[in-house]
Amino acid sequence: MVSESLREKYGEKLVALGESHKEIVVLDADLSSSTRTGMFGKKFPERFFNMGISEQSMVTAAAGLALSGKKAFVSTFAVFLTRTYEQIRQSVCYNNIDVKFVVTHPGITVGEDGATHQIIEDTGIMCGLPNMKVIVPADTVEVSSLMDYLVDKTRTPYYVRLSREKFPVVNQPDYTFIEGKNTVLRDGADLTIFCNGSMVGHALNAAEELKQQAIDAAVINVSSMKPLDRENIIKYAKSTGHILTAEEHSIYNGLGSRVAEVVSEEYPVSVVRIGMRDTFGKSGKSWELFDYFHMGIKDIVDAGVKCFLEEDKYETVS
């Protein structure tokens, strides 16, 4: 699988869409070379606002622009956006206006910068906001399709979680993002791995290894964390009886929690969650950190085997 940069694709799409959509404005907080919004800024300087290291001002100004008919893209590192939680809540979500928060550098793949920059609780924070929708794309194909969708079809707040790292391309070239729909990247009968973002590539690799152990694992990309594809989750809870979730995020208030909510309400089966376990990250290479925090490919395989073999313990499969 070839790997490509999601933020680079974001920057390219902003430029392409900015050409045909004059209502697009972009705001950044002194990180435009990292988030890649600088590409838009270079092409359309009059519609690009570098607000300095002033995230509160950035978010409220974006709200004012959106209230005046603009489509505002707001970018910074994920960790810094959360300091404006309340501006997002009142000025954007309560007004229910066209502001898209597209953040980069979340999770442990920030790597060497360490714990201060590795936010692992952001999707939980954002999913809690009324009117906010939360998307965690898995690859550049998905980013591209998502951007078209956000610009052409939506007028409400979204939180889009990109990454510092390149991710393997897992979707087919003709893939179309559909809000609230999961993508079955690999079908399977014994176990389902619900995952998103960086963990999708890991899960596909893990599924290959599980196959060697005669465990047939489905791998499903849950890029649309809110709204959630409940129907797909219930379907696979029923058909495979075992669920594993994998996310580059805290297991609290993240993908694992959301999936567990659905199955516990609709069709209880065991859910094993892989992710950050109530701990801050640390400096290191990102592949080292995945192993350090038990979120690597081997950890998914081990959890998958354990989850599958412990069938009797749960007695949940009808």
Partner: peptide, 24 residues
């Protein structure tokens, strides 16, 4: 024009509106 209540946010919103006026 906009909901308010939590303090400190209106001036930023006003700035956004003022920028939009200039753009348009």
């Amino acid at each position: 024009e906009t909901s308010t209540g939590s303090l400190g946010q209106g001036l930023g919103i006003g700035l956004g509106m003022a920028l939009a006026a200039k753009l348009d």
